[in-house]
Design a protein around this nucleic acid. Structure first.
Length: 418
RNA sequence: GUGGGAGUAGCUCAGGUGGUUAGAGUGCCUGGUUGUGGCCCAGGAGGUCGUGGGUUCAAGUCCCAUCUCUCACCCCA
């Protein structure tokens, strides 16, 4: 048997309606905020990600599905969406068409990680990116969108964690200070931390190793290195969130794994999930557009995992309802079967949802089938009915059956009002 | 990449210390009604016991290897 690839999953008919529910909720929600949808290709040039996300990140260094195509081009299945959206923003010069661009997306991503609860190799995210504003109102709007969307879906136990990692200057200074502080402890650090010491010392702050945490207790804090502008930006974001009644907590050690963030970073998690409890992560990235070759453009955005959202939602499936077929047409003999198809087609044209049998089964098994599919009415046609231009309409809930002449059928079904 | 747990019917799972034709519930099909579903009753189909090797008179059960799923670490959504 050929199975689906590790970390990929089929979404079967008993689940697809959940996905459609999320999808339609999102489109409706984003419209209220005046955001427009953007869709980018499934794969990009590898260079986009190595430059955009950062060569040293886990994603780029070990998780990408990359290959060289027949023309010798190095390509990669999207592991992340901000870089492609930024690429598209630059390529189509969206910045010159309006002063701010509010975009959202929903897409399929690929990362080669070890699967676990809330993590698969092919997965889905939705998110927003706002281009053109350096002001805290943009940060607050983006954060509010993610938080409020989860809220309206009814997810409880939301935790919003907020931090500012400052502008470029601030981080350069801080990086140097952190290196100076850590240098005497270098031999005590794990191998990965020693590598990070070289490439990205901020990530050491994220360590889960006890004795490293101990070392870091007296390390300089990034908050103290924020410039005056960084600080006031952060303060304004916080007060805007307060004004919107969105609760948050500050976590100065929170460093995101992607290199492009500046100033605001945040994460929303839910206790309804397992170890992978982040529903959404995001922040500001004022340098990325420039890094990827565009005009300097401030931007802020987030991405949220749809699988994780579904997991968090799984606990309360009551609001969702499966839509069943309304009418099942049963033909009793070979003579009437072609007639059944015609009637089905007519009724569909009238707007009903109609199904027929494909296995030439008996009346008994067809009623059973109709029952299983919880259809509202069964229409039964035998030779007698055919000869007299009538049909039997059976209400599957009450069991009541009435003889209806064929030309009154639509009228009769409409009156039933199901 | 590292560690824990698990692989027996479509699904959920039983199968002390090896012992005849491997079970249950549920789902599926048929019948109990010449053309009437649900409930009930009866019957039926459905299994390379994850795979390969080994020990043994005998392996679902013991040993080794391997694959897959799953949870966790790392990291992320």
């Amino acid at each position: 048997m050929i199975r689906s690839v590790k970390g990929t999953h089929d979404i079967l008919p008993d689940q697809t309606w959940r996905w459609r529910k999320i999808e339609s909720s999102l489109h409706g929600f984003m419209q209220k905020y005046g955001y427009q949808e953007i869709r980018t290709p499934a794969f990009e040039k590898t260079e986009l990600f190595s430059r955009g996300i950062g060569e040293e990140t886990d994603i780029v260094s070990k998780e990408m599905y990359s290959w060289t195509d027949q023309g010798g081009e190095k390509l990669t299945l999207k592991p992340e969406l901000t870089a492609p959206v930024v690429r598209s923003f630059i390529q189509h010069n969206l910045g010159s068409q309006s002063s701010t661009n509010r975009l959202y997306y929903m897409d399929t991503l690929f990362r080669r990680e070890r699967p676990q609860k809330g993590r698969t190799r092919q997965f889905h995210q939705f998110g927003v990116e706002v281009f053109g504003s350096e002001h805290p109102e943009a940060d607050a709007e983006v954060i509010a969108i993610s938080y409020n969307f989860f809220k309206t879906l009814g997810i409880d136990n939301l935790t919003l964690t907020l931090n500012s990692i400052g502008s470029d200057d601030c981080r350069n200074n801080y990086r140097n200070e952190l290196r100076n502080y850590l240098k005497p402890f270098l031999s005590d650090l794990t191998e990965t931390s020693q590598n990070r010491f070289q490439n990205n010392p901020l990530r050491i702050l994220d360590t889960k190793i006890e004795h490293e945490k101990e070392i870091l207790k007296n390390a300089p804090e990034i908050g103290n290195f924020l410039t005056v502008d960084d600080k006031s930006h952060f303060e304004e974001v916080k007060s805007l969130l307060n004004g919107l009644s969105i609760p948050f907590s500050i976590q100065s050690q929170m460093v995101r794994g992607l290199d492009y963030y500046t100033r605001t970073t945040y994460e929303i998690s839910s206790t309804a999930l397992g170890a992978q409890d982040a529903l959404c992560g995001g922040g500001r990235y004022d340098k990325l557009v420039e890094t990827l070759g565009g005009k300097p453009t401030p931007a802020v955005g987030f991405a949220a995992g749809i699988e994780r959202l579904l997991l968090a939602l799984e606990l309360k499936p009551t609001e969702f309802n499966f839509e069943s077929i309304q009418i099942y047409i049963i033909g009793l003999t070979e003579k009437v079967r072609s007639n059944c198809q015609v009637i089905a087609q007519d009724l569909r044209n009238q707007g009903f949802s109609v199904s027929t049998d494909l296995l030439r089964r008996s009346l008994k098994s067809l009623l059973r089938e109709a029952n299983r599919n919880s259809v509202k009415v069964a229409i039964i046609i035998g030779d007698d009915e055919l000869a007299n231009d009538i049909v039997q309409v059976k209400d599957m809930e009450t069991g009541e059956q009435t003889t209806v002449s064929k030309n009154k059928l639509t009228e009769h079904l409409t009156d039933l009002d199901f």
